[in-house]
Design a protein around this nucleic acid. Structure first.
Lengths: 291, 291
DNA sequence: AATTTTATGAAAATATATCTCCAGATTTGT
DNA sequence: ACAAATCTGGAGATATATTTTCATAAAATT
C-alpha cells in the first residue's frame, strides 16, 4: 500500500473523484485540464479559473488529504521538480565497483551536475560569436591566466597556436604585462581566465586592454570574476567540487568545445598547419610512431 | 529581435548576469540550480533557499524586467505549462537553447560517455593505493608531462604543492631531465602524463626512474602509453572528442579526484598549509578580497 | 585615508492569500 | 411536499506574502 503522501495530486483526484461534489468535480476537471500548471496560481486564481468559490478549492484540498491549499500546491511543486529534472544527472553509480561514497563517484556526480548547470547558462549565440572572433586571422589573440587557471590558459594557448598564427600566451608574471599591452591593437582579442579567488592583476589587465580597444573574453566561474564586467563576452562555468578546491573540469570542457568550434570554422587552414606540424615532428623524431 | 516578454526567466538571468550584484548572483544561481521548480515558492521561501533577503529577490525580479515577484512567478508558470505540454522539446539536450548538432551538445555527449567508460575501467583499490603513495611525506613526488599534457601536469603540480612539501615539476625541456633524475631516490613517486601521440622521452624517463627504484604512476589514454607498461600503476582515461584533437576533460577529472583523495588522507597537514598560504596571499595582496 | 556610491537586509507598511463562519441554495430521503 | 442533510459561495477574520523604507555595510573612487 502506498502511503498517501506519495500519491500525486492527479492520482488523488482520480481515486476520490466519485466522492467529490458537483462544484468540486468542476474544479477537479479544470485542474486536470491543464495539469499541473493549472494549479500553480493562488487559491483565488484557481477558483476563478474553475468558476467555483475559494472555499470549494480549500475543501477539496482537504478532502484529498492535504492540510490546506498551500500544502496541495507544495505537492504540485515537487511533482514538477521531479518531472522537469534532467534524468541524465541521476546516474546512481559511475564506478560500479566502488561504493557510492567513494571520491570517484562523488566527484562524478558533482561534475555532471556542473556540466548541466553550465550548459544551461551558456548562450550558444555568444559562444558562436566568440568562436568567430577567435578564428579571425586579421586580429591577434592574447591569452592570460592566473595562479590556478594558468594551466587552462596554457592548454588553450597550445591548441590555438596550432590552429592559427598570431597567438600569444601572456607570461604569468604580471610585472612584465605592460610589455604585452604594448603589442595589443584595437580589434585584438584578449582571452582571460579568472576564477575565485579573483586576481587583482587580471582585472587591471582587462581594463587596460579594453581601453585600448581590445575585445575581451573572460572564462570565469558561476559567481563571475569582476573582470567579466569589463569583458565583451564571458563564460561562466560551475566549479563546485567535493574537495577543498574548485573543479576546473567544466572550464576545460568549455575551452575544448571552443577550440573545436574555432577549428571547424577554419578547417582548411588548420588542416594545412597540422600537416606541417606533423612533418616537423617527424623530422625531430620527438614522438614515437602511433600505432 | 525578440520582445522582452518572450524571453524565459533563465534567458533573462543569463543576459543580465554580469549586471547582477553579489547577492543577486547567489540568488540567480540558486534559481538556476533547480530550475524552474526552485522559483515556485513564495518570495520568502525563495529568499531563504538562496540565503538572501526578500528585498534582494524583489530587486532582481525588477532588474530582469518584471513588475514584481508575482510577475516573475507568473512567467515561470507559463514556462512550465509550455514545457510540460510539449514533452518532446525537453530533456534530451544539454544546452536547451542550442540545437542537438551544436558543438556544445555533441561535446557534452561524448564527454559523458568518456566518463562512463573511464570510471568503469578504474580500479578503486588501485586508486586508493596511489592516493596513499602520494600522501606519504617520506618520499618526494616528481611530476612530468608532455607537449599537450604539460597543462595537466602543471595543474596537478600546483595543487600537490599546496597539499604537501617535496613536490617537483620536471621542466618540459627533456634535455635537462638528467638533472632531475639525479634527485630521484628509491621510494620516490614519479607521476607521468602521456597521451597519444606518446612521447619517446617520457618513456625514457620512466624507464630510468624505474631502474632507480622510483615508483612510477602514469596517467594516459584508453590505448595506453608505452610508458604505462613500465609503471607500477596507471590510469587510463578515454579521450574521444568530436574534434581534430583529443579531449583532456576526463583526464583532468581523474586528476582532480586524485587530488581530493590525497588531500583528505592528510587533511590536518594540508589545512595548516592552506592557512599559511592564505596568510601569505593576504600579505602580498595578490588577490582581491572574495566576498 | 576620506568621500561618494552602491549594495544589502531588518523591519515596518501594505497588499494579497487563505481560511472560517454562516446564511441561503440544493439535494436527498421519506 | 416536507424535513433533514448536504453543498455552496459571500463576507469577514486571520495569516502570509509582497513591497517600501531606511540604516548600515561594503566597494569604488578620489
Amino acid at each position: 500500500m502506498t502511503a498517501p503522501e506519495e500519491l500525486t495530486v492527479a492520482e488523488r483526484i482520480r481515486n476520490r473523484f466519485d466522492n467529490l461534489t458537483r462544484a468540486e468535480r468542476q474544479l477537479a476537471n479544470a485542474i486536470m485540464e491543464n495539469y499541473p500548471a493549472s494549479g500553480l496560481g493562488s487559491i483565488t486564481a484557481v477558483a476563478i479559473a474553475s468558476n467555483v468559490s475559494t472555499p470549494t478549492v480549500l475543501r477539496m484540498a482537504k478532502k484529498l488529504g492535504f492540510s490546506g491549499f498551500p500544502d496541495l500546491q507544495a505537492a504540485l511543486h515537487l511533482e514538477i521538480e521531479a518531472t522537469i529534472l534532467n534524468p541524465i544527472a541521476k546516474h546512481n553509480r559511475w564506478a560500479e565497483n566502488a561504493p557510492d561514497t567513494h571520491i570517484l563517484n562523488r566527484f562524478a556526480d558533482v561534475v555532471m551536475e556542473n556540466m548541466r548547470q553550465t550548459l544551461r547558462q551558456i548562450d550558444p549565440a555568444e559562444f558562436n560569436t566568440v568562436a568567430e572572433l577567435l578564428s579571425d586571422r586579421e586580429h591577434a589573440v592574447h591569452v592570460v591566466g592566473g595562479r590556478i587557471t594558468r594551466s587552462l590558459a596554457d592548454y588553450f594557448f597550445t591548441h590555438m597556436q596550432v590552429i592559427r598564427e598570431n597567438v600569444t600566451l601572456v607570461a604569468p608574471n604580471s610585472n612584465i604585462w605592460p610589455h604585452y599591452l604594448l603589442n595589443m591593437r584595437p580589434g585584438d582579442v584578449l582571452v582571460a581566465f579568472d576564477i575565485r579567488r579573483y586576481e587583482r592583476d587580471i582585472m587591471g589587465l582587462v581594463k587596460m586592454a579594453k581601453s585600448k580597444g581590445v575585445v575581451v573574453v573572460v572564462f570565469t566561474d558561476q559567481w563571475g570574476s569582476p573582470a567579466a564586467k569589463h569583458a565583451r563576452h564571458s563564460f561562466h562555468s560551475r566549479i563546485e567540487a567535493p574537495s577543498a578546491w574548485d573543479s576546473s573540469v567544466i572550464s576545460l570542457f568549455v575551452v575544448e568545445a571552443m577550440i573545436a568550434a574555432v577549428q571547424s570554422l577554419s578547417w582548411e587552414e588548420t588542416e594545412q598547419r597540422m600537416k606541417s606540424l606533423e612533418d616537423l615532428f617527424d623530422q625531430t623524431r620527438l614522438f614515437r610512431k602511433f600505432t
